[in-house]
Structures are given as C-alpha cells and as structure tokens.
Design a binder for these strands. Structure first.
Lengths: 128, 128
DNA sequence: TCACGACATCGACGATGGTCAATTCGTCTG
DNA sequence: CAGACGAATTGACCATCGTCGATGTCGTGA
C-alpha cells in the first residue's frame, strides 16, 4: 500500500497563457491552477510585500527591510514570502546572512494577462 | 447604545486605478481593498463562473445554466455569484423567474491593470 | 570555540471560507 | 387561490488560513 502519489505542491504553477478566462469556459483543472496563484496574491500582507519588494532599491529586499514597515512578526513575514515564492511570484536568493527577495519577471503580468478581457499588451512571445 | 456603525460590506470596491502595485509601496488600506476583490476571484468555482458567464451566449447566464456544468449545488452557486456581485465583478438582473448574471464591463480589466507591471493596454480614460 | 544575528520551521490558536441540506422567498400558471 | 419552479437565505460542519511565540539552523565575527 501507500504508493505515495507524490502530489508535489506543484511546480511554479505558470498560470497558463493567453487570456482564456473570458474567451471560453475554464476547465476544473485550469481554474484550480489559476486559483492557486490568485490565492497567493489575495492577501493584504502579501500584496504589500510584492509592492514593497518591487519598489525597493535594486528591485530586491531582505526580510529585515520588510518586517518593520509591514507591522508583522518576522515568522509571519517569512511565511508570506514563502507562499509567494511557492506560487512562482518571488525569487529567493541567499547572500551571506541575508535572504533577498525579488519579483519573478513575467509572473505578475501573466496573471494580469489571463484576467484581462482584451489582448495582451506588450505581447510576450516567449510562451504560447 | 448601539449607534449601528453601519459598516457596509463596502461599495463595489473599485480597486483604485493605474498600476500602483509595482510603482510604489501600497498602503494598508489600498492593499486591503485590492485583496478584497482578489479574494473574490481566487476560487476555482468562482473563476469558472466568471468564465462561463463571459463565454455564454449574450454575455449573460442564469443560475440554472451554471449549476449543472459546475457540479455544485444550487445554494452554493448562488453563494458564489453573490460574492462576485458584492465584489463588483458581476451584475445581477432579475427577469421574471430567472436571475441573469453578466460581467461588469471594466471590472476584470481594472484588476489586471493593477497587477500588470507595464502601462495599461487599451487605456480606459474614464477613470483617473 | 562561542556568542550573536538573520532567517526558517514548528505547534497552537482563533478566524475565515466552501459546501450542503433544509427552508424560505418570489413569480408564473392552472 | 394553490401548486410548481427558480433562486436566495439560513444553519451547521469541516477544512484552510493568518498570526504568534518558541525553537531550530546557518553564517559571521570576537
């Protein structure tokens, strides 16, 4: 028994491409994938973290830069950052004692593209 | 006693405009507003509902059109639709015995615009 | 080697959310 | 009016989530 299905927390998710939401009815699987990424973003603390990381000098920030302005404990901030990394929205790089977080380049735009009811703006030709 | 603070579930939310997420750090209030709308979208059943309503003939659908393909009970579908209406993403119109739901025109694009790291595409000049 | 600082993980608690069965509310029709 | 039908509301149950304090881990410097 126990074949251990190995249901990994999922690879970075990727969101799928194009703007399928309003074009055709989503399948249960597509909806689950999209919801997983959106649930990661749909939290005030995590939205502020994304925003603070993006607006920080150099496009990256360490936990010590984020804890105090956010008004949450350090373990809580670490938890939220992990959720965002697991969702494929942030990238974590450890340098010495500090851990630096930065936006994953196309991630937020991919989500925006799926939600948009018009054609994608810049038109990222790498995917699809 | 009981002045009844009347903390309304919030007006349609509106999300704010522009693409402030990656430009500057969000305030706690802005993050809370955005999170409220995103939480409404961040559910597989509700994503499929938005998608099915948008893809349906005439851009609108009644509950009876949605219950069966979604595989959820009628009360649950009604509950999800109410969440989407309260978030300002769907519009409800009752005609006779049936209740028809349709997308609120700019709502999804507004959310997409906030998440996007580039300038808004079509450029909806009505707001801001 | 030891102490300290930055960060991650663990365990627990209260709050929120998704779902359904049962009921209620409106509206049309016989 | 009474019945039927579509939809909304209620109440309850279980799962998931956000938060914290305590603890563990790893790299740095005295």
């Amino acid at each position: 028994m126990h074949v251990s299905v190995d249901v990994l927390p999922s690879p970075p998710a990727a969101v799928a491409c194009g703007a399928p939401l309003v074009r055709r009815a989503l399948t249960a699987g597509e909806a689950a994938d999209l919801a997983r990424v959106l649930k990661a973003i749909a939290d005030p603390a995590r939205l502020r973290l994304l925003s603070m990381v993006a607006a920080h000098a150099g496009g990256e920030a360490c936990v010590c830069d984020l804890t105090e302005p956010l008004g949450l404990s350090q373990p809580t901030v670490s938890h939220h950052l992990k959720v965002l990394v697991d969702a494929g929205l942030l990238r974590r790089e450890k340098r010495g004692v500090w851990a630096y977080y930065a936006l994953v380049p196309g991630a937020l735009d991919a989500v925006a593209g799926v939600l948009s009811t018009t054609a994608a703006p810049g038109g990222d030709p790498s995917s699809c």
